[in-house]
């Protein structure tokens, strides 16, 4: 089994094919989209491949250490940041092919006009613990 992170971006991914902002969809299209996402997660729970799914608020900031006894420095939020993560789903699957298949399915979630969004998702394998048998 191998774990993969499917990352969804607010900004930074190549433009989706059906690239219409959600507040320009009809309420029915929004409901259909939500249902698809919930069903997708429920199906992965049933197959035993679901690990976690979380959504992030768009607002955030950068923080760094600023030396002994000083409060951390904060910067941002940056409206012009190139890359902005919207959320993720973690899956635990048998193969890389399966991970690609599932990311493709998630990207097919319906959007404006009830048509698939064809959204670009970033697929990243987790680094694993070292195996017990090495020779």
């Amino acid at each position: 089994m191998a774990k993969y992170l499917m990352l969804k971006h607010y900004r930074g991914a190549p433009a989706a094919v059906n690239n219409v902002p959600m507040d320009r969809w009809t309420p029915q299209e929004i409901s259909a989209h939500m249902r698809y996402m919930n069903d997708f997660a429920a199906r992965l729970e049933e197959t035993g491949e679901f690990v976690d799914s979380q959504a992030l608020a768009p607002e955030g900031m950068f923080v760094r250490y600023d030396g002994e006894g000083r409060p951390p420095v904060t910067d941002g939020p940056f409206a012009e940041t190139k890359d902005l993560i919207a959320g993720w789903m973690v899956i635990d699957v048998d193969s890389h092919d399966r991970a690609v298949e599932l990311a493709g399915e998630l990207s097919a979630a319906p959007g404006a006009g009830g048509k698939p969004i064809h959204e670009w998702l970033e697929l990243r394998p987790f680094l694993t613990a070292p195996p017990t048998v090495t020779e």
Binding site: D23, R24, T26, P27, E29, I30, S31
Partner: peptide, 9 residues
Amino acid sequence: TRQAARLNA
């Protein structure tokens, strides 16, 4: 988001 969509529609 639905409220915005409703008004835009």
